[in-house]
Design a protein around this nucleic acid. Structure first.
Lengths: 123, 123, 123, 123
DNA sequence: GTGGTCTAGACCACC
DNA sequence: GTGGTCTAGACCACG
């Protein structure tokens, strides 16, 4: 899985990392039980600070997307249906759809995009 | 249109205001050409600072959702199809859908939510 | 001479009016000695406030571009070489040229634009 | 690079700062990739408020003249040919040239000034 | 240490 | 009365 960071973005680096991992899990690039890179390893190869990686991992653990074991490091382990944050997600989703709608997209176009995003990486 | 703010949220107040107005426009609560409250007026009734409101209005104007006429104040005036932000919006949408998928939702459930969000306030 | 106003602009209306008249004089659309519309007349046909027009005329008079006579109203009457503001103008010009340069224009392209702007309306 | 502010000018301080930086980049005093002073640092040494400096930086970033990297602060980074503003700039240029023309300058004199402004600091 | 955010209060330009 | 600008001082998120 290829990680990319936009250092000019207003989105904090740790959040960019968290988002990429969540997307990676949803897309099937990161399988259940798969071992994630070590904090230091990921930090070095990405050119970001180890504290930043650690913060992202901590957040992912709190959200239930990964578990961390002292011996094995971090592993993908989301409990289906257990992740919350549903409220924030729906709020965020509402905003995205409002923006797309105001940019002139029809309901069908929006649903088509949503559908393709859901299917992304399924194969 | 009722405005609500979460002062404990990590989302800046000016962005919360901006988001509510964008949602309001998309939902049809704010009609094209409708006059928005004055900066000071909105600030007073919402209990937030005038500069914060001003910042939200500036952002909305820059994004093309409103215009400010020196004579009439701020008005809703999005040019359909003219607002950009498509790239960021899709990125954000991808993340929302990833999160919903990992929470256990099927493709149909996600599309149903998206559809209802699109239709919100249409009547 | 056709007057146009951008009510959404950050440039004040009185300054927009002043600028259009200065451009009009330079372009030869407004001849030396030509009578300008009355304050109230111009205000009515343009849809702006009479005070705003008055302010523009006052500024033009101060700058030496027009004279106002109680009986004849306002007349175009710049004294060649007498208008000052040269310092501000050059400062402003420097900024324009910096911006054009940074937008990728060559010296020749910039000079070509300047030349054509100078010649504008000469015929 | 020496910064100077006219506290009595009608041009806002943040715009004066923005203009000086644009001129500095065009004149080659600020090289591509060069690090700009921190918001607070510049504010202190210039005697203006940090928020005012911040506003100027935000504007410059939005216009594409600088980028702010969370790790390194603000850096000069205009993408040649990417900055827009062409429309406003030409409008402004037209006005400058009208004023110079009415002050009695010939086409050659105006072009000579424009040319020297373009070459400024080239060596 | 950096920039981003927010507040309270003030002044001014514009219309 | 409107929005725009500026200040001083504070807190926080980020890296």
């Amino acid at each position: 899985m290829l990680l990319q960071f936009d250092f000019k973005s207003s989105v904090p680096l740790y959040m960019q990392l968290r988002n990429q991992i969540v997307n990676g899990i949803a897309a099937g690039e990161l399988k259940f039980g798969e071992k994630l890179p070590s904090v230091r390893g990921l930090a070095e190869e990405s050119g970001i600070n180890a504290m930043t990686v650690s913060k992202a991992y901590q957040l992912l653990r709190q959200e239930g997307y990964i578990v961390t074991d002292r011996r094995r490091g971090a592993q993908v382990c989301w409990e289906k249906g257990a992740t919350e944050a549903a409220e924030d997600t729906v709020q965020n989703l509402r905003l995205c759809i409002s923006e797309l709608r105001l940019s002139g997209m029809s309901r069908e176009e929006v649903l088509k995009i949503c559908s393709s995003l859901y299917e992304e990486g399924k194969a």
